[in-house]
Amino acid sequence: MAKKTVRDLDVNGKVVLVRVDFNVPMQEGKITDDKRIVAALDTITYLIENNAKVVLFSHLGKIKSEEDKAKNDLAPVAEHLAALLGQEVAFSTETRGAALEAAVAALEECEVLLVQNTRYEDLDGKKESGNDPELGKYWASLGDVFVNDAFGTTHRAHASNVGISANLESAVGFLVEKELKFLGEAVDQPVRPLVAILGGAKVSDKIKVIESLLTKADKVIIGGGMAYTFLKAQGKEVGNSLLELDRVELAKQLLEEAGDKLVLPVDVVVADAFSNDANTQTVSVDNIPTEWEGLDCGPESIKLFSEVLKDAKTVIWNGPMGVFELEKFAHGTNGVAETLSNLTDAITIVGGGDSAAAVSQLGYEDKFTHISTGGGASLNYLEGVVLPGVEAIDEK
């Protein structure tokens, strides 16, 4: 990797500022899923073991009001992190000022401090998410070196990543290093055949990804809600299914350019309502009833996708095949997950977001080579877009 990693820094006795992604789901002040916290432990533990004084920065949710501040307080995260590390984690209730500076100054080697939600700074003019240069400079003044280990925010230029990087020697942490390795090799140096599976709701969300992967992958499977825009482009009736009329011509163009490289569903599960209690039927994509909507791939589609995938050596999956949140329409997503879990001789990568949530919900987490922690960042990377949070890190 061209960028410095945490191994390249002298952290002994130093105050190391670390951008982590502790943007975890919470209900009534309780963390409901700690995967993002666990994902940062390797870097934090390494710094502790190498006698650093560790200062952690993270956002949580969006802050537009005092109510948002109360709801997105990071204090419960500090407690949970302490339990995971088996040591005390100090917590600063302030994002700047004398109290924060005193808390940093009080740190001994091997101790950890978590700073309050960086987006508290957004309540007065989006200083954090707008990458205010003075805020980035101020936070940088608190430490000696900086480590970015929040892959999920690398596609954004914020004060707590790009802003700090501009003022300190910087490196990526183990999580970001791992993400860039797997995604980078899969896209730029794949073991072939490379098959990409793209699902989710809208073509417009993934136009650049589709275009990019069509130039790199051997096959691109399209599922989920976005498939209906492509089916419409083929002249098929899609009923009440999700449809982006303004993208039909683009879909037609992509179909013409891709030829047999692009693989679409051949049957779908349609329903007379968006509900687990709806009446359903499985129909060919040539026979979708006008008053029904497609909410999942059908069994013949899963067979087709499995046939395409059986010889794959690298697979990138981003986006569910149906409305997996409703049990009745999770069969397509489940089928793809099961197929990929049985590809023992392939590199299988889930590109964050809803597909990562689906894999987790369906119990396949330990069956994949890599599950990305960053939905938007993963998509941007697959598009070939430069990630500002990585670009700002020092070269080796």
Score class of each variant (00 low, 15 high):
114 L>A: 06
235 G>V: 08
338 E>I: 05
390 V>A: 01
203 V>I: 14
323 V>G: 05
384 G>C: 02
107 L>E: 00
382 L>H: 10
154 T>I: 05
166 A>Q: 15
11 V>L: 06
318 N>W: 03
115 V>E: 00
83 A>P: 03
85 L>I: 07
31 I>R: 03
166 A>K: 15
91 F>C: 05
91 F>I: 10
65 S>I: 13
147 V>I: 10
390 V>R: 00
17 L>S: 10
296 D>Y: 07
307 E>Q: 14
147 V>A: 01
135 L>I: 06
263 V>G: 01
150 A>Y: 08
265 P>K: 03
66 E>F: 04
316 I>D: 01
60 L>V: 03
374 G>D: 08
318 N>C: 09
290 T>M: 12
262 L>G: 14
169 E>V: 12
309 L>R: 02
129 S>P: 04
106 A>S: 14
386 V>F: 01
72 N>C: 10
11 V>Q: 06
39 A>F: 06
341 S>N: 00
12 N>Q: 11
348 T>L: 09
81 L>Y: 13
249 E>M: 10
116 Q>M: 01
106 A>R: 11
231 L>I: 10
192 R>Q: 04
193 P>I: 01
55 V>Q: 14
62 K>A: 11
395 E>S: 12
376 G>M: 09
18 V>D: 13
30 K>D: 07
90 A>G: 14
331 H>K: 14
69 K>H: 04
319 G>E: 13
27 Q>E: 15
215 T>K: 15
183 L>R: 01
32 T>C: 06
392 A>C: 05
160 S>Q: 07
236 K>R: 15
137 K>G: 07
52 A>C: 05
118 T>I: 04
372 S>H: 11
287 N>S: 14
39 A>T: 00
317 W>T: 04
158 H>S: 03
39 A>C: 09
43 T>Q: 02
314 T>I: 07
46 Y>P: 00
265 P>W: 06
167 N>Y: 12
316 I>C: 11
174 F>M: 01
129 S>F: 02
324 F>T: 11
183 L>P: 03
131 N>S: 06
106 A>W: 09
114 L>Y: 05
227 A>Q: 13
128 E>H: 12
383 E>P: 03
292 W>A: 06
374 G>S: 10
365 E>K: 15
110 C>G: 11
265 P>D: 05
35 K>T: 14
42 D>Q: 11
97 G>M: 11
6 V>R: 05
187 V>H: 00
26 M>V: 11
80 H>Y: 14
30 K>Q: 14
188 D>R: 06
94 E>F: 13
56 L>G: 07
273 A>M: 03
75 A>Y: 10
199 G>Q: 09
382 L>D: 08
351 G>M: 01
112 V>A: 12
239 G>C: 11
269 V>Y: 06
249 E>K: 15
272 D>K: 06
62 K>I: 13
247 R>W: 14
65 S>V: 11
376 G>P: 09
368 F>P: 04
204 S>K: 09
99 A>C: 07
130 G>Q: 02
192 R>H: 13
22 F>K: 02
240 N>G: 14
80 H>I: 01
295 L>T: 04
153 T>P: 06
